[in-house]
Design a protein around this nucleic acid. Structure first.
Lengths: 121, 121
DNA sequence: CTCATTACTTACATTTTTGTGTGCCTCTTA
DNA sequence: TAAGAGGCACACAAAAATGTAAGTAATGAG
C-alpha cells in the first residue's frame, strides 16, 4: 500500500483500467484487505480510531491508519480531529460512501449465496 | 496469484474475513487486476481465449490464463474445450456470475459518478 | 517524577500479485 | 522443410500489499 512506482507496467495497466472503467475504479477503492469492513463498521455510526481497532479483530494500528488514510483521500470517509489530550479522532462515511451501502449489501448477499451454492456443489 | 503460504498472517487474516463476511468473499473473487473486465467482456457472449486477448488491451497470455483459471475455479466462468487442432477453448459466464451483472453495473455507475464528483471537488 | 493514554509514524521483513520471456504440442498450409 | 496457429506451462524478476516492532507527542493522574 501507498508506495507505487508510477512507471511500472503494473501501475500503467492499473491506471488505464481505472480510467476507462468505473467498475475497476470502484474495485480499486474498495479492494484493500480491510476497507470494506471499515466502511461497514461505519455504516451505523461515527467511530473513533480506537473503537474501530477494537471491533475489527486482527487489524493492526498501521493497517488501520493506512486504510483510513486512503479512504479519506478517496472521499469515502471524513476525519474529525478534536483538540484534546490524549488525542481524539473520529471517522464517518461521506455521502458518496453512503450511496454505496446498497451495493455492498447486495455484494454481501450475493457472496453468501454464491459461497453456499458453490460449497455444496 | 496462485501461490499462497497458508500459515502466513496475511492469509489467515484473509481467510477469517472471507469467512465471516460475504462482501469480502465477493471482493476476493473479483479483485484481481483483470477479473472484472474479463467478466464484463463475457457479459454479452461466449468468447475464446484469443478473442479475449484481442479485446482486452494490455493483458498478457499469462495473466489471462491465471485469471481465467481462478474464475473457473471459483465458479464464475465455464470453460469448454473443443477437440480441434489448433486448439479451441471458449469461456462463458456461469449462472452465478450472471446474477452478479446488475451489481457490477451499479458499481460501474457509482464509480463513474464518484470519480466525476470527486475530481471536480 | 513516572506512567498511562491515543492516534499515529518510521524502518524493516515477509507475502502476494503482476509481468517478462521462452518453450511445447499437434496438426495444417505454404 | 519450415513455419504458424492456439492455448497454454515454466522459471524468473519486479512491484505492491501486508505485517512486525518500536517509537513519538502532549498532558493529566498518581
Amino acid at each position: 500500500m501507498s508506495k507505487r512506482k508510477i512507471t511500472s507496467t503494473n501501475n500503467i495497466n492499473r491506471e488505464k483500467l481505472i480510467d476507462f472503467c468505473g467498475m475497476m475504479y470502484a474495485i480499486d477503492l474498495l479492494g484493500g484487505r480491510w476497507k470494506l469492513i471499515i466502511l461497514y463498521k461505519l455504516e451505523k455510526r461515527t467511530l473513533r480510531f480506537s473503537e474501530l481497532k477494537k471491533i475489527i479483530p486482527g487489524i493492526t494500528d498501521r493497517m488501520l491508519t493506512l486504510h483510513l488514510q486512503e479512504l479519506e483521500r478517496d472521499g469515502l470517509v471524513e476525519r474529525t480531529v478534536y483538540a484534546e489530550v490524549p488525542p481524539r479522532v473520529d471517522y464517518r462515511l461521506t455521502g458518496s460512501a453512503q450511496s454505496l451501502i446498497p451495493i455492498w449489501q447486495q455484494l454481501e448477499h450475493w457472496g453468501v449465496a454464491h459461497k453456499k451454492s458453490w460449497e455444496t456443489g
